[in-house]
């Protein structure tokens, strides 16, 4: 039973160039790995994670690839407070002659 319904917002993955097809001018670490592509869009048919699928992108282009994520999250954030930065404001106000609040 396919568990991802047609119309769901998903991410697909594809290898664009295998390591042997890549540009000859690459550093060694990059040479060893493929050039990969990730793209989001709406599934045009029911499917399971890992299937070869087709999506329709935000501008209506149809692209094929392996289904890897459903409703992919934006997981970048503000990060943790950085102790090395936290006191800079107080230090600067002191230099400027204030009390550093």
């Amino acid at each position: 039973m396919p568990d991802v319904a047609k119309g769901t917002w998903v991410q697909i993955h594809r290898v664009v160039l295998g390591p042997e097809e890549r540009s000859p001018h690459l550093p060694d670490d990059t040479k060893k790995v493929p050039l990969e592509l990730r793209l989001k869009g709406f599934l045009t048919h029911d499917a399971c994670i890992g299937d070869e699928v087709e999506i329709e992108t935000l501008i209506g282009r149809r692209v094929k690839g392996r289904l890897v994520k459903v409703n992919p999250e934006y997981d970048h954030g503000f990060g943790r407070p950085v102790p090395e930065l936290l006191t800079i404001g107080m230090e600067l106000r002191k230099i400027l002659g204030g009390d550093g609040r």
Binding site: V16, R22, L35, I59, Y74
Partner: peptide
């Protein structure tokens, strides 16, 4: 990338390498 999608663009996300130009 998020911001581009917020404006309705299709964002093709690649791994590291100058062959971005090929794509």
């Amino acid at each position: 990338g998020r911001k581009c999608e917020a404006f309705g663009a299709e964002v093709i996300q690649l791994s590291v390498g100058p062959e971005l130009f090929y794509t």
